[in-house]
């Protein structure tokens, strides 16, 4: 009970503060009127129905605006949570593939599938962001797509040639597994890091959008 009260107070800090301040002003004002303090306030003892109605309308309008804005903010927040979860899944997928590439056990089909999934998910996320009216810099999406264009040949473009007898190519496939020479291995590692960085930028763009 105490815990839930504390949580409620924590989440409704602003409302509680406004209520307390209003109550304090009302109390002081009441005291001023009651004890006829000379505060140079002038009070009319008649109530103008038009003014009263206008006051009530203003209060109702203010409450409605606060309520609507609050609802909108909540909806935006939950949309962002969902979208961030999707990006988190991409982070996991890319990290898993990077680890497999590092360990020399990344299947060709898995690399191709990762590239397609990241591309489609980022494009889908962008449509969802637009639908949720979360504005993000379009350059974030484009930089991820450009990075995929860089990674595609690094991971899936093997040369057209007879079985190599001399120097090994930068990328070859054996039993469906990708094998890199040292230089390509470094390039692949860097490319995965760059992709992760760009996904992190997407995280920030969603949070700040």
């Amino acid at each position: 009970m105490r815990k839930s009260l504390r949580r409620w107070l924590h989440t409704h800090k602003a409302e509680v503060a406004i209520t307390l301040i209003s109550a304090f002003i009302g109390f002081v004002g009441g005291l001023g009127v009651r004890f006829d303090l000379n505060l140079n306030f002038q009070f009319d003892d008649k109530i103008d129905p038009v003014e009263f109605l206008s006051l009530v309308c203003t209060i109702i309008l203010a409450l409605v605006v606060v309520f609507v804005l609050d609802r909108q903010k909540d909806a935006e927040k939950s949309a962002k949570v969902v979208l961030l979860k999707r990006v988190e899944e991409l982070h996991a997928l890319v990290s898993e593939n990077a680890a497999s590439a590092r360990g020399g056990r990344l299947p060709y089909t898995q690399a191709a599938a990762m590239l397609k999934r990241v591309e489609l998910t980022v494009n889908r996320l962008w449509r969802l962001l637009e639908g949720a009216e979360v504005t993000c810099d379009p350059e974030v999406r484009l930089s991820i797509l450009r990075q995929l264009e860089v990674m595609d040949p690094l991971l899936t473009d093997t040369p057209t040639a007879a079985p190599f007898l001399g120097n090994l190519p930068a990328l070859r496939v054996e039993n469906g597994i990708l094998l890199f020479n040292e230089q390509r291995s470094n390039e692949v590692e860097t490319a995965f890091e760059d992709l992760r960085d760009k996904l992190t930028t997407l995280d920030f763009a969603i949070i700040n959008g």
Binding site: T109, A111, A113, M114, R117, T156
Partner: peptide, 9 residues
């Protein structure tokens, strides 16, 4: 699932 460049080429 996805195409590698070599497959399509």
């Amino acid at each position: 699932a996805g195409y590698g460049r070599s497959f399509l080429e």
